[in-house]
Amino acid sequence: MMGGQKAPLAFTTINLHVGTIRIYDFDGIRLHAYDTKDPFGDESYLFETEHELIGLESPMFLNNLTEYADYVNSLGKPLNHFIMAYHPGGSNAFIYCRTYATETTKKSISEGGSIKTLIDNFSAAFGNHLNPYIPAITNIIKAGRITIGDIEFVVKDTKESFDLEIPAINAVYTHMVGNRVHNILESPEQIDAMIGQMNDYTKKKPSLILTTHDIPATVEVAAEKATYLKTIKELALRSKDKTSFVEQASATFPEYDGRDYLKMSAAALF
Results as ranks from 00 to 15, higher is better:
I215K: 02
T117C: 07
S91P: 01
K263L: 11
S44D: 07
D214E: 13
F26D: 05
E52T: 10
T13C: 10
F126C: 04
H51L: 04
A168E: 15
K263W: 11
Y24V: 04
I54L: 11
N80W: 04
P135W: 11
E234A: 14
G196E: 11
Q190A: 14
Q5I: 13
D35M: 08
F94T: 09
M194G: 11
G19H: 04
L237E: 15
E152N: 10
G89F: 04
G149R: 04
K159H: 10
I119E: 05
Y96P: 01
L46N: 02
H32L: 14
I54E: 06
F253H: 02
T104E: 14
G144M: 13
L229T: 09
Q248A: 13
L235T: 06
S265Q: 05
G90I: 07
R22M: 14
D241M: 06
E247K: 14
L130M: 12
L237S: 15
H213W: 11
T211I: 00
F270W: 11
L185A: 04
E152Y: 00
A226I: 03
S123R: 06
F94S: 10
H17K: 14
A268M: 13
Y201H: 09
G144S: 09
T36V: 10
H87R: 06
L269M: 12
A267N: 08
D157W: 02
K116S: 14
M60A: 13
E189T: 09
K116T: 04
